[in-house]
Structure formats: C-alpha cells, structure tokens
C-alpha cells in the first residue's frame, strides 16, 4: 500500500480556515480596532485624527473587503454552519469546557449580529467617514449603548475562548499543562479586550478622556 497522502477533505480545509480566520485577520483586526478607538480615551480630536488616518489608507476598499469584511463573513457564516452540526449537552455534562463550547456559539452569533449592525451604522451609513461626534451621539441612545456593551463583551469573550481553542486545536498547546496555560492566556485576552472595550464605550458615552493629560498643555 502506498503511503502517499491523499488531499485533505474540503471540510477539513474550511474548518481550519474558519479557525485561522478567527484569529487572523478577524482577531487581529479587532485588536487594531480597539487600539485605534482607544484614541478616544485621549481626546475627540485624537480620535478623529486616527480615524481620518485609517479612512485614507491606500487601497482602502481592498484592505477592508479582503482583510476584514470577507474573512468576517466567512468566519461568521461557517461558524453558524458548525453550530448547526453540533448538539450541546451542558445540562448532562456541566463542565467548564462544555460551557465554553456553548457560550462560544452564542457569543459568536451575538458578536456577528453586533458587528454587522456596527458596520452598517458606523461604516455604511457614514460612508466610511464616521467621526467622534457620530459615535458619541449614537451612545446617547440607551438601546444603542446596551447593544454596544453586549456586543463588545461578546466579541471579547469569543476572541478569548477562540484563542484558547486555536492553541489547542492547532496543537500549539498539546499537553494538559500547556492547555491550562493556553486557557489562562485566552482568559487574559478576553478580559483585556472587555476592559478596553468598555472603557472606550464609556469614553464616548460620557465624553470622558482619562488620558487627556498626555496632550501637550495649550
């Protein structure tokens, strides 16, 4: 019998792609996005400047579609397909990993819906020229505010668990000890994103700029 490898099944490649896109570029974009938005913690002007900087990058549409929208769409869409093929059983087996499995699906769909809406309001309606004032105005709507908080928390959680999953499922954390460490790292990612995300929301909602002291005194 020959030992030559046959080609992996498409379901294998799609699954791996799904897992990979979650981290790169989607996760990476989320990190970049939070970083850029953190400018609001300094000042509205800083935020607008950062925003303008991003709005004027070369090849913007290609970068946006190829690097963000399409991967996101794939990750979310294929994620829903995966969800439909699983059958959660936390009531019988209420272990942490199993809860995370279930939560990963719900936070995924929430994040997906939120990001879709967020893109629609902040990217499409503004034709990609969203400003500090636009966002701050949206935040005055309590429903928007709640949705922002839920969305940010869901995305952060999903990324945190996803990081753990990624490290396990790609065999980067294989031993029990390494997987525990990966779990702690994932938790750190989730918490860090949640905290930063909430701070940014608060910044817009209350016009609060805790790092304004960084600015040169006028």
């Amino acid at each position: 019998m020959s030992a030559t490898a046959t080609q992996p099944d498409s379901s294998y490649l799609l699954r791996k792609l799904h897992s990979f896109t979650g981290l790169l570029p989607v996760g990476a974009f989320l990190a970049e996005h939070f970083w850029s938005n953190s400018a609001a913690l300094v000042s509205a002007e800083k935020y607008n400047a950062t925003s303008e900087e991003l709005q004027t990058i070369p090849f913007r549409l290609i970068v946006e579609w190829g690097g963000i929208f399409l991967p996101l769409l794939f990750h979310g869409g294929y994620g829903i397909y995966i969800w439909l093929r699983g059958k959660s059983n936390v009531s019988a087996y209420p272990w942490v990993g199993n809860w995370l499995y279930l939560a990963q699906r719900y936070t995924g769909i929430i994040a997906f819906a939120y990001i879709g809406w967020h893109l629609y309001t902040e990217r499409w309606l503004t034709h990609g020229k969203s400003t500090y004032a636009n966002v701050a105005e949206d935040m005055q709507n309590p429903w928007y505010l709640v949705f922002f908080i839920v969305g940010v928390l869901a995305s952060s959680f999903h990324l945190g668990v996803g990081t753990w999953n990624f490290l396990c499922k790609w065999g980067l954390a294989a031993t029990v000890k390494a997987q525990q460490a990966a779990g702690r790292f994932g938790a750190f990612v989730g918490v860090a994103f949640s905290v930063v995300g909430i701070l940014i929301i608060l910044s817009f909602r209350f016009d609060w700029h805790p790092f304004s002291a960084y600015l040169p005194t006028k």
């Binding site: 992996p8 099944d9 379901s11 294998y12 699954r15 791996k16 995966i82 093929r85 699983g86 059983n89 087996y93 272990w95 990993g97 199993n98 995370l100 499995y101 990963q104 753990w164 999953n165 396990c168 499922k169």
Partner: peptide
C-alpha cells in the same frame, strides 16, 4: 482529514 475527521472536534473537552 477526511469527512468526519479531526476537524470536527470543537474542543468542548467532555
């Protein structure tokens, strides 16, 4: 890596 292969694991760890 075929249908129903290792990719289906979703790390619930039950």
């Amino acid at each position: 890596m075929g249908p129903g292969g290792i990719q289906e694991c979703a790390n619930a760890q039950n």
